[in-house]
Structures are given as structure tokens and as C-alpha cells.
């Protein structure tokens, strides 16, 4: 259990995480990220996600989204100057090499294939929160 060490983080200005995922994953992810001290900005549609992305430290995007999927959202985030450098963690439902390659090509900072341990996600979110301020381009981690 790593939660207690995080309580101090919420005292300061907590980093915001854009979360674009659908039920049932969104509830569990929201709880996980909130418990870890992040400010979660859930987005149900692409428009919401694009709006919520501005100022977020990290985006967690599920490829399984109703309106067109996660890849177009990733592409849209990359195309918008305001969110160009926002690190995106892509949650993919298939471990196919083509999928992984496409995610990397479109500029995902990290990829996690479902299912994954909460700690793995938090680890990446934290790392990218730190990296985001130091490095404009996120490093690609293949999960």
C-alpha cells in the first residue's frame, strides 16, 4: 500500500489528470487516481476531453471510446498547440504490434495493455507529471 505517502501531495496544488475512459473502467480509474492525490478531470466525449486537456499534467486515454475511439483523440490533442506536449497514456485493449506501433506513431507517451495493476498506471502518471515540466516530448513506454 502506497497511499499514505501520497497524502502530502494533495496539500500542494495537485496535478490534474485528464481521464477519457468509459464505464466500467472510468469509475475505478477515477477512484484510483483521486486516492493517489490527483485531480481527475473525467471527459465523456472528445470535445469535453479537448477542453479538459488544457492545463492537465497527464492524460489517460482509453482506446475504446464511443465517439471514434482513443486514437483520433490522441491525434487531436497532438494537433492542438495548447495540448501538443501533454503526455498521453494510452490504454489499449489489444497487444497487437500494429496497435502498439500506431500508438507510438501518433505520439502516445506510454501504452498500457489492459488489464494492468493500478500501481503501474500510477507509476507512469507520476513519472510523466514530473517529466512534463522538464521535457516537452514524453518518452514512449511500451507497457
Amino acid at each position: 500500500m502506497s497511499a499514505p505517502s501520497l497524502t502530502s501531495a494533495s496539500d500542494r496544488t495537485a496535478p490534474a489528470v485528464l481521464l477519457a475512459a468509459e464505464a466500467p473502467l472510468d469509475a475505478a480509474l477515477t477512484a484510483l487516481l483521486a486516492d493517489a492525490g490527483f485531480v481527475v478531470r473525467p471527459a465523456g466525449s472528445r470535445a469535453e476531453a479537448l477542453a479538459a486537456a488544457v492545463g492537465a499534467a497527464v492524460a489517460v486515454v482509453d482506446t475504446r471510446l464511443a465517439d471514434g475511439g482513443g486514437f483520433p483523440l490522441l491525434e487531436a490533442l497532438r494537433a492542438d498547440p495548447a495540448t501538443r506536449h501533454l503526455p498521453v497514456i494510452l490504454l489499449v485493449g489489444r497487444a497487437a504490434p500494429v496497435e502498439v506501433e500506431k500508438a507510438g506513431a501518433l505520439g502516445a507517451a506510454a501504452i498500457l495493455t489492459k488489464p494492468f495493476a493500478g500501481a503501474d498506471l500510477l507509476d507512469r502518471v507520476r513519472r510523466l507529471c514530473g517529466a512534463n515540466s522538464a521535457r516537452p516530448d514524453g518518452e514512449v513506454h511500451h507497457g
Binding site: 466500467p24 473502467l25 469509475a27 475505478a28 480509474l29 477512484a31 484510483l32 486516492d35 482509453d62 475504446r64 490504454l91 485493449g93 489489444r94 495493455t113 489492459k114 488489464p115 494492468f116 495493476a117 493500478g118 500501481a119
Partner: peptide, 14 residues
Amino acid sequence: IRSRVAALVLAGEV
């Protein structure tokens, strides 16, 4: 299965 299991695992962990 991947999505559902991911949700279950995360919910359990939380």
C-alpha cells in the same frame, strides 16, 4: 475481457 478485468482489478485495488 481486457476492459472488464481491468475495471475489476482496479476496483479491487482501490
